[in-house]
Simulated assay, not measured.
Amino acid sequence: MVDLAWVAGSRWRIEECFQQAKNEAGLDHYQARSWRAWYAHITLSMLALAWLAATKALAIKGESASAPKT
């Protein structure tokens, strides 16, 4: 029963991630006519989402994304 609850919770996090990718990174806005174009769009959308997540994490920590590391 505990495993079932864990799996259900995991699915919710994954669905939330895809919804965020659709809203913020344009994951669902494509008109690809070939596999290569679709793959490029999905790759760039997921890269944009990763950058947004990293920037958000830095902002929460109080660091500037453009501050040089010393």
Rank of each mutant, 00 (worst) to 15 (best):
A21I: 08
H29V: 14
Q31G: 03
S45C: 15
A59S: 04
Y30N: 11
E63C: 04
I42Y: 10
A50I: 04
L27F: 06
A53Q: 02
G9M: 13
G62K: 06
A5Y: 05
D3H: 10
F18L: 11
S64I: 00
Y30S: 12
N23G: 01
W51G: 09
D3V: 15
A59N: 11
C17G: 08
K61Q: 06
I60K: 15
W6E: 13
R33A: 10
E63Y: 10
A37P: 01
R33N: 02
V2P: 11
T70C: 03
K56W: 13
N23L: 13
A67G: 07
A59M: 03
Q31D: 06
E16I: 00
A59G: 13
A54F: 14
E16A: 10
T70Y: 11
S64V: 03
F18S: 02
D3N: 13
T70L: 02
S45K: 05
F18C: 15
L44N: 01
A48F: 02
W51T: 07
G26H: 00
S64L: 07
M1S: 10
W6T: 09
A40K: 02
R36W: 05
R13W: 05
A8F: 09
V2W: 03
R11G: 07
L47F: 12
A25P: 03
A21Q: 09
W38D: 00
A32H: 06
V2I: 11
F18E: 13
A50N: 04
A67P: 04
A37W: 00
I42A: 11
A25G: 03
T43W: 13
S34A: 09
V2L: 04
E16K: 07
Q31N: 12
C17P: 04
T43L: 05
A65E: 03
E24G: 01
C17N: 10
F18W: 14
S64K: 14
L27R: 01
A59Q: 15
A57I: 09
Q31P: 00
D3M: 15
M1E: 12
H29A: 11
R33E: 05
A8L: 15
L47M: 08
A54K: 13
I60G: 03
T70I: 03
T70N: 03
H29S: 10
Y39H: 08
A59I: 07
K61Y: 04
R36L: 04
A65N: 02
A40E: 05
L52Q: 14
A25E: 06
T55K: 13
S34K: 07
E24F: 07
Q20P: 03
K61E: 05
A8R: 15
W35D: 09
W51R: 07
F18K: 13
L49E: 06
M46D: 04
S66K: 13
A5W: 05
F18G: 00
S45T: 11
R13T: 10
S45V: 08
A8P: 04
A65S: 02
W6H: 14
E16C: 03
I42H: 07
L47Q: 13
L44V: 01
T43M: 08
H41G: 04
M1R: 14
R36D: 07
G9P: 11
A53H: 14
Q20A: 15
E16P: 11
G9N: 14
L44D: 12
A50E: 07
M1A: 12
L47W: 00
A37V: 03
A54L: 15
